[in-house]
Design a binder for these strands. Structure first.
Lengths: 209, 209
DNA sequence: CGCGTTTTGTACGATATGGGACATAAATAC
DNA sequence: GTATTTATGTCCCATATCGTACAAAACGCG
């Protein structure tokens, strides 16, 4: 590995050092987009939430759309990693699925004021129709969630956790559908307790195959 | 019924007659919102798509938000009616469910340019977080879809189309989840054929109980 | 036909928005 | 120290956006 590959180590760059941390700035921007959507979040609002000036915003990730795409990438990647960790064996299939749904619920209801649901589903869907890049990222994100389910379900079938005739691809799509439904209904104002109850019954149904 | 209750009959009102038809105007406005979302649709764009002047827009349904809420109501009501008709007996449960999903797919891919998915899921979700009226309407709309499924599933169990131990409430939530997943993934760019294939396998799974 | 009533078209105004120009500040390289 | 490089803060602009004021137009009524 060449010394140029050091990532986190602050290779002391020339010029005035930046006063913001890109990661926390992106996290704050994500929260703004999450609450108000892409079109509903002004560039000034972004500057306020990140506590950065507009020129700094441009220097960091680019214009408003660039920030949004970066927020999508960050959210999708973190969610995927979190999902795979929750599903990882030797935890049983049922327990793993329930952990995914519980983590999702914790995230969807993490805002004190209003349930926000899933960032991708709640905010990217409306932009997807007119922005091909958003559409691609949204499609890829949903597909990644599904792939995580399918990988685990395939392993479950091979390990005998499911019957030999179970269809991992179909079950994965059903598990994804349950996740998407919970994400959507959370943002639509449905009670957390009823969503949690649904997830429990759905897990039982999925694992009965 | 008093003579004041005549609805469609054009009781010749005083003053200059309006040049637009509220129903078609609302349909056109819905299409604009569907493509670009609420925040992404300007009031001028609404005037262009409806071919009405802004003062006429205000006179018809009110401001932009009022138009959007009216569009939501119209869409939810029409969808609910369409769903119930598709599920109505004596058509079998499996056939009824498949009809619902096929009608949904036809609607979601009705736009020539880009797949738009479900109007409620695709556009209302992003506004739901900051607008309580939108959130309530979205939640009620999703619940109405679920209720249509549940009513039919309950009848199916009582008629012996499902096993005696089947749980209509859970199956309805699963059927809803499948619908929502298709709506979302259509807008996310997933291929219509794969969504259709998913719906077929999901129907078989749901009816196997 | 005038009269009130309602709709329509044009034009306008206050504000918000996305984006950038510019000079200044803070670091490194020489 | 001086030059160079990079980030910051303030100010500004062109445009878009929402909403409205106003007068002209098109109808029923007496």
């Amino acid at each position: 590995m060449s010394s140029a590959e050091q990532k986190e180590a602050d290779a002391p760059r020339r010029g005035r050092p930046r006063q913001y941390d890109p990661e926390t700035a992106l996290a704050r921007a994500t929260k703004s987009f999450w609450r108000q959507g892409f079109s509903g979040t002004s560039f000034d609002a972004l500057a306020a939430s990140t506590r950065m000036s507009k020129p700094s915003l441009y220097g960091a990730f680019g214009d408003k759309r660039d920030w949004y795409l970066a927020a999508m990438d960050r959210y999708a990647e973190r969610s995927r990693v979190e999902m795979e960790a929750a599903l990882a064996r030797p935890v049983s299939l049922a327990k793993g699925l329930q952990r995914v749904y519980d983590l999702a619920l914790a995230s969807y209801f993490s805002d004190a004021k209003t349930p926000l649901g899933c960032f991708l589903i709640g905010t990217a869907a409306s932009e997807a129709a007119r922005d091909a890049d958003v559409r691609e990222r949204l499609g890829a994100g949903l597909a990644a969630f599904n792939a995580a389910f399918e990988t685990r379900l395939r392993a479950a079938r091979d390990a005998g956790e499911l019957t030999r005739g179970a269809d991992p691809a179909l079950l994965a799509e059903m598990a994804s559908a349950v996740l998407f439904s919970i994400a959507l209904r959370a943002r639509a104002g449905h009670a957390r307790a009823s969503l949690r109850a649904f997830s429990r019954k759905a897990v039982a149904l999925l694992c009965a195959s």
